[in-house]
């Protein structure tokens, strides 16, 4: 085969391979939703993070505005501390609140940011004051059963 035809085919093959890698990275993987722009970090403490994992999304009004950068345990307060990395182009009031939510009934967990009303905005390194930990399904069911018991005894009492 002529060298030129050979080169053409190999060139096409390599380009197709690279396109496939890019497709996997951008369309299948999460590289596309990485914010290339600047980010700032905000800390938050939770009494329970449930199944939250690093790189879980941080959403506000359902839109991804950042990622969970780091998860650790604070041995003084016996709480979990989570570092959030937020896109610099989104700024939130200082009294915003964070809650750990679950997408769907059994889906993955994410952090939901609820904007507050403060005039000052969160800066790099600030901590979120108001947080709500993950809802643990067992606790929820336990609570539900307890409540149900209580209402039944109330009904039976009179």
């Amino acid at each position: 085969m002529q060298r030129a035809t050979l080169d053409l085919w190999v060139g096409l093959f390599v380009v197709a391979g690279i396109v496939a890698v890019l497709f996997l990275a951008l369309k299948v993987g999460n590289l596309g939703s990485y914010d290339n722009g600047e980010t700032y970090t905000v800390k938050a403490s939770f009494d329970n993070i449930g199944g939250l994992k690093p790189r879980a999304p941080v959403k506000s009004a359902g839109v991804v505005v950042g990622r969970v950068a780091e998860i650790g345990f604070d041995p003084e307060n016996y709480e979990a501390f989570v570092t959030l990395s937020l896109a610099a182009r989104y700024s939130f009031p200082r009294d915003s609140s964070a809650a750990i939510m679950t997408s769907g009934l059994l889906g993955e967990q994410y952090i939901s940011l609820e904007a507050g009303g403060d005039e000052k905005m969160l800066a790099n390194g600030d901590a979120l004051k108001i947080t709500q930990g993950a809802v643990v399904l067992e606790n929820l069911i336990g609570q539900f059963l307890y409540n149900k018991n209580e209402s039944q005894t109330e009904q039976a009492a009179p």
Binding site: V14, A16, G17, I18, V19, A20, V21, F23, L24, V28
Partner: peptide, 8 residues
């Protein structure tokens, strides 16, 4: 390259 094409 082939493996990436396979996955894609």
């Amino acid at each position: 390259l082939l493996a990436a094409l396979f996955s894609a």
